[in-house]
């Protein structure tokens, strides 16, 4: 079904909503100066909890990214008490990053001791941790961990994922601001809502979600086949 391009042109987007999206991104990623500048440029009202603890958050995930996970855990405890005690998955992921750092530093004995004292108690709580621990321990079987089938655990992507999760959890704990990437959510929703459309969407193709077929002067969206379409959302006809 096509949307009338006129209707598309007439859709009004509230400037406050867009500014909130931008600000949420800046706050989420700890762009302190940019946040302050954006607030002053747009004349937005400064949220009560705006920039709260941003510097502390920044320090926490810089420590975690730069291989000082135990310091990051300590600072997290100071900033938001009990946050990690109530989130086993996150605590395990952070501790596993420290284990990875020890392996990469070739401190085998220390890595083993750390696994036994800090990681293995998790396996008592739930079976899933046992499987994860086995994956991490396999890194020890290789002198060069990069050759291990589980080498992705050493990579920056995995670390970034854990740190993002920590950042998000802290934000959720501390503030009532939009604390997730609203853009991320919106892009996801836009996949679910995407339908063939008459209006020109080439300008949006940079989002990488829309593959735009051009034919007969009209632009039509095609969809990734992997999307979980369900009764909740009508699949475009």
């Amino acid at each position: 079904m096509d949307v009338d391009p006129c209707q598309y042109e007439q859709i009004a987007i509230n400037e406050k909503d867009v500014n909130n999206i931008i600000l949420s991104y800046l706050i989420h990623n700890c762009y302190k100066e940019s946040s302050e500048s954006f607030i002053s440029c747009t004349g937005m009202k400064q949220p009560a909890d705006h920039l709260e603890n941003m510097e502390k958050r920044k320090r926490i995930f810089h420590h975690a990214l730069e291989g000082n996970v135990l310091k990051a855990i300590e600072l997290t405890g100071q900033l938001a008490q009990d946050i990690l005690e109530n989130n086993n998955d996150l605590l395990f992921d952070l501790l596993s990053l420290h284990f990875v750092d020890l392996v990469c530093s070739k401190e085998w004995a220390e890595a083993l001791e750390f696994a036994q004292t800090k990681l293995s108690p998790f396996s008592v709580k739930e079976q899933k941790y046992m499987e994860k621990i086995e994956g991490f321990m396999s890194l020890l079987a290789y002198e060069n961990p990069v050759e291990c089938p589980m080498f992705h655990l050493i990579g920056l992507d995995y670390r970034q994922q854990v740190v993002d999760s920590l950042n998000q959890t802290i934000l959720g704990w501390l503030t009532s601001l939009y604390s997730v990437y609203l853009i991320y959510i919106l892009l996801q929703i836009s996949i679910l809502c995407s339908i063939p459309a008459k209006y020109d969407l080439q300008s949006l193709s940079f989002c990488l979600f829309f593959s735009v077929d051009v034919g007969d002067g009209q632009h039509t969206l095609t969809f990734p086949s992997t999307l979980p379409w369900s009764g909740l959302y009508n699949r475009p006809q």
Binding site: M1, V3, Q7, Y8, I11, I13, D17, V18, I21, I22, I183, L186, L187, I189, S190, C193, S194, I195, A197, Y199, L201, S203, L204, F206, C207, Y233, N234, Q237
Partner: peptide, 21 residues
């Protein structure tokens, strides 16, 4: 409009059409 606004309008238009379906 900025790219973000165009994306939001795309989202809005799609949701409107989904609702009309």
């Amino acid at each position: 409009h900025s790219y973000l606004e165009r994306l939001l309008r795309q989202l809005t238009a799609c949701c409107l059409v989904r609702r009309s379906l």
